[in-house]
């Protein structure tokens, strides 16, 4: 099933308690208040539930921006429309 970048941003907005308008691929993760240990665990669980993508905390620690999350989803087979 193909999803859009906006679908992913909407999911991230819910997980990190931000407005979807405030999120974009360029947004730095360290600038997001909810990007803490529990936020990361919740994100991992939601990615697994919603897209069947399993990430390790070690992989996530290397992420700098939302674009990195989108890239790893694509690499793991999620069909995200450009």
């Amino acid at each position: 099933m193909q999803i859009s970048i906006n679908d992913v941003l909407a999911m991230l907005a819910e997980v990190f308690e931000e407005s979807v308008e405030s999120l974009s691929p360029e947004r730095k993760l360290e600038s997001i208040g909810g990007w803490d240990s529990i936020g990361v665990l919740t994100l991992m669980a939601e990615l697994d539930d919603q897209y069947g993508v399993t990430l390790t905390t070690e992989e996530i620690q290397n992420f700098a921006t939302i674009a990195d999350i989108l890239a790893v989803l694509k690499n793991k087979g999620v069909d995200i429309a450009e």
Binding site: I38, L41, T42
Partner: peptide, 8 residues
């Protein structure tokens, strides 16, 4: 167990 933040 389903780990989630309070908001989720």
């Amino acid at each position: 167990v389903h780990t989630r933040s309070l908001s989720m």
